[in-house]
Write a protein that binds this DNA or RNA. Sequence first.
DNA 1: ATTGAGTCCTGAAGGC
DNA 2: TGCCTTCAGGACTCAA
Length: 284
Amino acid sequence: MPELPEVETVRKGLAKRLLGEVIAHIGLRREGLRFPFPKGFKKGLEGRRIEQIDRRAKYLLIRLDNDSTWLVHLGMTGKFTLFSHNDIPEEYGKHDHVIVTMSDGGVAVYNDVRRFGFMDLIVAGGEQNHHHFANLGCEPLSEDFDAKALCKSLEGKKSPIKNALLDQRVVAGLGNIYVCEILFRAGVSPLRISSSIAGKSPQVTKRAELLVHETKQVLIEAIEAGGSTISDFAAVDGDLGYFAHSFRVYGKEGEACHNSRCSGIVSRISQGGRSTFFCPKCQH
DNA sequence: ATTGAGTCCTGAAGGC
DNA sequence: TGCCTTCAGGACTCAA
């Protein structure tokens, strides 16, 4: 499911309902997700008040009142569904793995069909050195992410730009869908070698600036749309996002290029084991 | 040091 | 009502 905009949507949805609430009970319906739940996970969460909910890349950071942080990654199919106290389901499905009961009687259910998601509990001050964060690149929507920074991380890279943008060390939070959309909007071929974007000539700089600009633009639009939906993404409050309707190349194999002045046909190739959709005619 | 391939897991969709 | 293959929004681990 979730790339940065979807995680941001979930963050907002959770914050709206859970901020200031106390976690009364954690029900773990299996030993772990992608990784086992850490030792003391349940005990560490129960009784804690949720003070703040942040996002870093595709990670949710749920700040607790003892300065520890509940880390959640949604993987491909992770989602939260919220129920108020008079609306709690009578039974849970087989992929409802974590049941969070709040002290107001409300329940947050974490469901994850493929179980690629994971959770951790980070003690106070442990975030900087946490292995999931140590090598993360900059936030694409922050001021740190500009053409200069992008060029620096692409310097000397021989991999295609598509693969580089998916690399969380280059820039953190982009996934397969948005990278396809960004490259299309920027008119940059997914096959272009990364280092060719990192040079000093005006033409090269222009490409980097365009990539940065379109990255921010696409993410902002998607966040505004409330996150996108492919097949199984439901925003935390049950609302579906609509950005999927705005895809210009993703999933559009065989269709005419969205660019009205281009007569190209969207094609689909495989890069690093992932599908890439692009217009071979107007992306260079 | 980088890069690509294989891996985890389940379910949906399409071909026959 | 089948069976088989392919594919899916992520990212870790390993080998070259």
